[in-house]
C-alpha cells in the first residue's frame, strides 16, 4: 500500500468520463474514478487521474457495452 496522494477537489468537479461525458464517482480507497455509465474505473496515479479509456479497468458484474 502506497501513501495516498490527494486529488484537487476543484479538478474532480470538472472531470467527466471521456467516453460518456457522465459524472464520475471518486473511490478514495481504490484511487479510482468510476464511470458507472461506461462500466470503467479510471486509475489515479500519484494524484494524477488517467482519463484514458485504454488505461481504465472494466468494472465487473453488470457489463454495459455503451
Amino acid at each position: 500500500m502506497t501513501a495516498k496522494s490527494t486529488v484537487d477537489p476543484k479538478l474532480l468537479e470538472i472531470l467527466v468520463c471521456p467516453v460518456t461525458k457522465q459524472a464520475l464517482r471518486y473511490d478514495e480507497d481504490a484511487q479510482e474514478l468510476i464511470s458507472e455509465a461506461a462500466g470503467l474505473a479510471y486509475p489515479i496515479r500519484d494524484g494524477i487521474p488517467i482519463m484514458l479509456a485504454d488505461e481504465a479497468r472494466p468494472l465487473e458484474g453488470d457489463q454495459k457495452s455503451d
Partner: peptide, 8 residues
C-alpha cells in the same frame, strides 16, 4: 493535473 486525450 490529469492525463487525457483531446479527441475524447
Amino acid at each position: 493535473a490529469f492525463i487525457g486525450d483531446e479527441e475524447a
